[in-house]
Each structure stands twice: as C-alpha cells, then as structure tokens.
Simulated scan of single mutants.
Amino acid sequence: MKGFMYILKCSDDTYYCSRTIDLKRRIKQHEVGEGANHTKNRLPVKLIYYEIHPHIALAFSREKQVQRWRREKKEALIKGEQHLLPKLAIAYWAL
C-alpha cells in the first residue's frame, strides 16, 4: 500500500511533518482540527510539500528522517533545492 510523507505549514509559521495512506482525507482532517495536537492548535494549516512512496513503511521512515532536520534543511527540501541538502546536513557545531 503506497504512502505519503507530507509537510504542513501552520499559522504560527511552524512545520508539521507526518505520513498517511490517504493524503486528501488526512489534510481535510487537519483543516477541521481533527489532526494532530500540533496542527489543531495552529490552524489554519497549508500543505506545502509531499512525497509519494511505494509503501507506507517507507513514508514513515522518511517522515522520521525529515523530522530530525533543522528548519533550513526542511525549507531547502520544500523549495526543491536538493543540491543544498548535503551542506545543510553538517551539524551546526561542526562549522
């Protein structure tokens, strides 16, 4: 069963990253406050990025990976600036 990894932008300018098997339904749930606590307290939310994976387990793994990223790296992914991702993977204290 395919899965989606997605990123929402919340009204307080934070990002929320998760995964689902039905993206349209899940976004509608977030929009009416039936989603995660993070989003229901920060409405409205806007879908700003998603990836399609051949299996939900892969979407889950990708979600966990992206959740650990700093904001700057998430923004490079969202903007399609994949060439910046390796540089942004360097720990801030190593610079």
Score class of each variant (00 low, 15 high):
residue 45 V to H: 02
residue 59 A to C: 05
residue 70 R to I: 11
residue 11 S to R: 09
residue 95 L to K: 12
residue 23 L to S: 02
residue 37 N to S: 14
residue 65 Q to T: 15
residue 19 R to K: 12
residue 22 D to N: 15
residue 25 R to P: 02
residue 80 G to S: 07
residue 89 A to E: 15
residue 45 V to W: 00
residue 15 Y to P: 10
residue 46 K to G: 04
residue 42 R to M: 09
residue 10 C to R: 14
residue 86 P to R: 12
residue 30 H to I: 03
residue 89 A to R: 15
residue 73 K to S: 12
residue 25 R to I: 03
residue 80 G to N: 09
residue 84 L to Q: 13
residue 44 P to F: 06
residue 94 A to D: 11
residue 34 E to P: 04
residue 13 D to E: 14
residue 94 A to P: 03
residue 16 Y to R: 04
residue 60 F to E: 14
residue 66 V to Y: 09
residue 15 Y to H: 15
residue 65 Q to S: 12
residue 59 A to M: 03
residue 12 D to K: 12
residue 7 I to F: 02
residue 6 Y to W: 01
residue 9 K to F: 01
residue 34 E to Q: 15
residue 52 I to G: 01
residue 45 V to L: 03
residue 65 Q to M: 10
residue 47 L to E: 00
residue 31 E to Q: 10
residue 94 A to R: 08
residue 47 L to D: 01
residue 47 L to Q: 00
residue 93 W to I: 08
residue 51 E to F: 00
residue 70 R to W: 06
residue 63 E to C: 01
residue 58 L to P: 02
residue 49 Y to A: 05
residue 73 K to W: 02
residue 29 Q to M: 06
residue 56 I to D: 06
residue 35 G to H: 02
residue 75 E to I: 08
residue 83 H to N: 07
residue 42 R to L: 06
residue 38 H to L: 06
residue 11 S to V: 07
